[in-house]
Write a protein that binds this DNA or RNA. Sequence first.
DNA 1: GTCTATAGTGCGATAGAC
DNA 2: GTCTATCGCACTATAGAC
Lengths: 226, 226
Amino acid sequence: MIFEEFKHMAMISMEEICREVFMDNPASIKIKKEAVAVKNLVNIFDTALRLSNEKGFQSMSLRDLSRTSGLSMGALYSYFTSKEELLEMIQNQGRRLTRKVLTRQIDVNAEPEEVLRTAIQTHLYLTEIMQKWFYFSYMETKNLDKSQQKKSIESELETEQVFIDILEDGSRKKQFHVKNSVLTASVIKSMLQDWYVKRWKYARREVSVDEYAEFVIDFIESAIKK
Amino acid sequence: MIFEEFKHMAMISMEEICREVFMDNPASIKIKKEAVAVKNLVNIFDTALRLSNEKGFQSMSLRDLSRTSGLSMGALYSYFTSKEELLEMIQNQGRRLTRKVLTRQIDVNAEPEEVLRTAIQTHLYLTEIMQKWFYFSYMETKNLDKSQQKKSIESELETEQVFIDILEDGSRKKQFHVKNSVLTASVIKSMLQDWYVKRWKYARREVSVDEYAEFVIDFIESAIKK
DNA sequence: GTCTATAGTGCGATAGAC
DNA sequence: GTCTATCGCACTATAGAC
């Protein structure tokens, strides 16, 4: 599968995500009509992610968000009860999506080499589509309160565990030669994160997600194959 | 060389760094006595880095900084002319230090394999000593103005170029088998950054900088050695 | 469901006493 | 060289008109 196929298949759209947020937050979102709410949520999240990723969530004032989105201050507060809650909504949604897509794509019965490839590729493709969300989550974790930070850390370790399991399975089946599966998973994750954190660098060098995926898979396999 | 030796040799102390800052900013720092200025700068930077790395530079108010450092608002403004300038001072100093240490340690006449090892180790050791500074630079780049952001990007690409050069030299001398030196340097850098960005993770797992350095060097060599 | 107007708070920055 | 007091401003959040 190449990126264009994944994109079509995953059917991850801003609209679908916002519909989920709408249904999950009936207490905070005062608007009742789904069509209206989803339309405005798309606008709000899109604008908030853009502004936050430019200069940070704290630096983005709700006046900025109001001006840029075209919605009034009052209207904004119909979609969240505080600026902090807006932050949490974005974070929660990103986490839910990662877990869903990553576990759905991985076939645990396949050969370790194939599973590893799929996991890396899926992660890169997902973060390519949702770059804004992942960059935001990465950069704004420290602005969350303690309980939300804990969730964020758990989510990170959970993703890493997926790779640890694949590596250990491969070692058991004598297909990989992995000295330290925890550290190996850790550096794999750092390479995957680089794709969405340093997006500007790869854009400037005109490296496509498929080229990067191929390179990373090849690099890792060279390092761990018997 | 192991970390403890490097630490002793590099002689990078908060005080030495603050002395440099003091001498480089005569226009902004109103205090004339070096001893007084350096003592307070150590306090200011130390506190600012701690608070910023906890919750972000923008979220840290100068009142926070004043309260935690024990200096009054008025006293703080004797050491910088605006909050933004404080941000720039920290960033500039971090960049200067990286360039200095990295180029000083690398012996271009050594064998590529040895040079690569030294570069990786030195980078990890330096970021271990200066973790707070590097984490800050990494996270707060987007809060800088455009001209400072440009410098930050240049600095990142400059460090990456060091690795590209080493890899290409190794390829030329038939010691490495590198398909794409730019992307290889890029993923090496992501592994090095992970050490100071995700410091909490390695601390929790009780991985020392020497263990991490050994693992990363070994991993990369496995991937690129003929 | 969306708007404008505004209350109330805390910010960055400075002036002037010591 | 450091402090306290304060200014003016921009912020988050809300109330009430439409």
